[in-house]
Amino acid sequence: MRRMVCSALLLCLSGAAQAAVDSETRCFSADNGGKPVHLQFTVVGDADAGWQAAYVRYGKRGKPITLGWLRGEHEVLAEDRPWQFTDEWVEIVDGKVHGRYTTVHQGARYYGFHYRGGDGREVEFAEDLAALDASGRRCAW
C-alpha cells in the first residue's frame, strides 16, 4: 500500500514539474541563391523559473544546434498592439559560440529571423507558417 501511495505521489509530482516547462516551435525558410534553406526554431522554457533555451535544426534531418539566450529588448509600437520583442541568441557548437540569431516577434508572429555566422556570413529567414506539422512540434518540408 505504501509503495502505491509513493508511486502515485511521484507521478503527480513529475506531472507538475513537466507542466511548468513549455515549448514553442516555428518554421523558417531562406532563399539561398535558388536553393531554399529550411530551419526549425524551438524555444523551451520555464516561465516560473525565468529560464529559457532554444535549438535550431536545419532541413529534415539536421542535428539540433543549441542556442543560449543572450539578451532581449521590448518596445510598445502602439497602445492597442502587443509589445514587439527583439531577442538575441548565441549558437553553441562543441562548447564554443559559432554565430548569433536575432529574432523579432510581436504577438504570435515572427517578423524577423536573422543569422550571422562567426565567419561573417548572414542569412535572413522568413517565417513559413505552412510548414508546421499538425502536432505543432516539428516542421514538415
Rank of each mutant, 00 (worst) to 15 (best):
P64E: 12
W141R: 10
D48P: 00
M4F: 10
Y55C: 06
I92P: 04
R61A: 13
D128T: 12
G68C: 06
W51L: 12
L11Y: 07
A130F: 04
L10E: 13
A108S: 14
T66D: 11
I65V: 15
G59T: 10
A108Q: 11
F28A: 09
S29L: 12
H105L: 03
R61S: 15
C6V: 13
G72M: 10
E91H: 02
H38Y: 14
G34S: 10
Y115P: 06
D22V: 15
T66E: 11
V56I: 14
Y111D: 13
D128R: 12
D46F: 00
R100G: 02
Q18A: 12
Y115S: 09
R100E: 10
G50A: 02
E122L: 05
S135P: 03
A53V: 06
T42W: 03
V76C: 07
G45T: 01
G68A: 12
P64S: 07
A20D: 12
H38L: 07
L9C: 13
L10P: 03
S23E: 13
A134V: 08
D133L: 00
E88V: 15
M1T: 04
R116T: 14
E88H: 01
I92W: 07
H98R: 12
R116K: 15
L67G: 00
V104D: 01
L10K: 10
P82F: 04
S7W: 03
G120C: 05
R61V: 07
A49K: 13
R100C: 04
A140S: 15
A17W: 03
D128N: 14
R100Q: 09
D87F: 01
Q84H: 02
L39W: 07
Q84M: 14
V43N: 08
N32G: 04
T102K: 11
V90I: 04
V90K: 11
D94P: 00
A108Y: 03
A108L: 10
E75C: 05
E24T: 10
V37K: 14
Y55E: 14
R61I: 03
R138W: 06
E75F: 02
G62P: 01
Y111C: 05
H105K: 07
T25E: 11
R71F: 02
H38M: 03
A54D: 01
V97L: 06
F85M: 02
V44R: 08
S29E: 15
Y58Q: 15
F28L: 10
T42M: 10
R138F: 05
V37L: 15
R81C: 03
G33M: 01
D31F: 03
Q18F: 05
V104E: 06
L10M: 15
S7T: 06
K60R: 13
V90S: 11
H105T: 00
V93I: 13
V76Y: 06
G99N: 05
L39T: 06
L77H: 06
W141L: 07
D48N: 12
R61Y: 09
R137I: 04
Q106V: 01
A16Q: 09
K60C: 08
E124Y: 04
R109F: 04
Q40A: 00
V104T: 09
Q18C: 11
G136F: 00
D87R: 07
L132H: 01
V123F: 05
D31I: 03
Y111S: 15
R61E: 14
L70W: 00
T42D: 04
V90L: 09
K60E: 14
C139T: 06
V97D: 10
E75I: 04
E79G: 11
F113L: 05
A130T: 12
P36E: 12
H74M: 11
C6I: 14
M1S: 08
V76T: 11
R26T: 00
S29C: 10
